[in-house]
């Protein structure tokens, strides 16, 4: 049985994120167990894994919402596991995070939701700039007319797109997507795929994408890894993993 591995150090050079020997457990539940990963600049990496495998935990560790028990997470020049809150804010202003459940602020309108990260991270931004950026991201996700609605007034798919818009409004260098296309119709899902690709092209973002949607994986992934038993079980391009004979990998491609 041959498991595709290797292909570390893609030709793109400098890494955006390096994770070394990451451990995280909740009580007796070992979620990440010596996990290693390198995300290159301008690379889209998809993380596959069963429900409960620890994919969300992994990206929450990267953005500093969870503290790992052991290990390093280097983003740019900083180890996020060792930063103070203020230093973490500086690193986070360059990162976007799409929550699995969207996490839209339900007491604010769509516009206020989108303005929130802008006004918080960039203290001296003008109203004109804010308006322009809000209009731009709403245009990008095709929901220009919803700016003054409350999140509860939107459908599930629309909420997801607004959450995406909020993630990308700061034009972050790194975006962590937790299931960007789950719950969307196929047409919108393909649009989101295109959006992810165009962001990568336009703003040179590096992304980690968690997805079960194989169409999304196929279009967006430069590289795919499979998270199993807290480790990086397999790694390769979509085609490499698709052709694998390994049972654990094949399940995802059926």
């Amino acid at each position: 049985m041959k498991i595709p591995t290797g292909k570390t150090g893609t030709p793109m050079g400098e890494p955006a994120i390096v994770i070394e020997h990451l451990y995280k457990q909740f009580g007796n539940n070992i979620v990440l167990n010596d996990f290693n990963l390198t995300l290159q600049k301008e690379e889209n990496m998809v993380v596959l894994g069963k429900s409960g495998a620890g994919k969300s935990v992994l990206i929450k560790c990267i953005i500093g919402l969870l503290r790992p028990d052991k290990g390093k997470i280097i983003v740019g020049a900083d180890d996020v596991t060792k930063l103070t809150h203020e230093e973490l804010d500086r690193v986070r202003s360059k990162m976007g995070f799409l929550f699995q459940g969207n996490a839209l602020y339900d007491s604010m309108t769509v516009r206020e939701n989108l303005e929130f990260p802008l006004r918080r991270h960039w203290i001296d931004v003008t109203q004109k700039q804010v308006d322009d950026m809000v209009a731009e991201v709403l245009e990008n996700v095709g929901l220009a007319q919803t700016a003054d609605l409350m999140p509860a007034e939107l459908s599930g798919g629309m909420q997801k797109r607004i959450a995406l818009a909020r993630t990308m409004i700061l034009k972050p260098e790194i975006i962590l997507y937790d299931e960007p296309t789950t719950g969307l119709d196929p047409v919108t899902a393909r649009e989101i795929d295109k959006l992810i690709l165009s962001l990568q092209e336009k703003y040179h973002t590096s992304s980690i994408i968690i997805s079960h949607d194989m169409n999304c994986v196929k279009t967006t992934a430069d590289r795919v890894i499979l998270l199993l038993d807290g480790k990086c079980y397999a790694e390769g391009t979509y085609q490499e993993l698709e052709q694998s004979a390994d049972e654990n990998i094949k399940q995802f491609f059926e």
Binding site: K60, I63, G64, L65, D89, R92, S93, M95, F97, F99, G101, A103, L104, Y105, D106, S107, F116, P117, R120, H121
Partner: peptide
């Protein structure tokens, strides 16, 4: 209010938005 913000990860979302 804070309880539902917590369970829907809105508090985490604020945290990553520089707040």
């Amino acid at each position: 209010e804070l309880g539902s913000m917590k369970v829907t990860e809105q508090i985490d979302a604020m945290d990553v938005s520089g707040t």
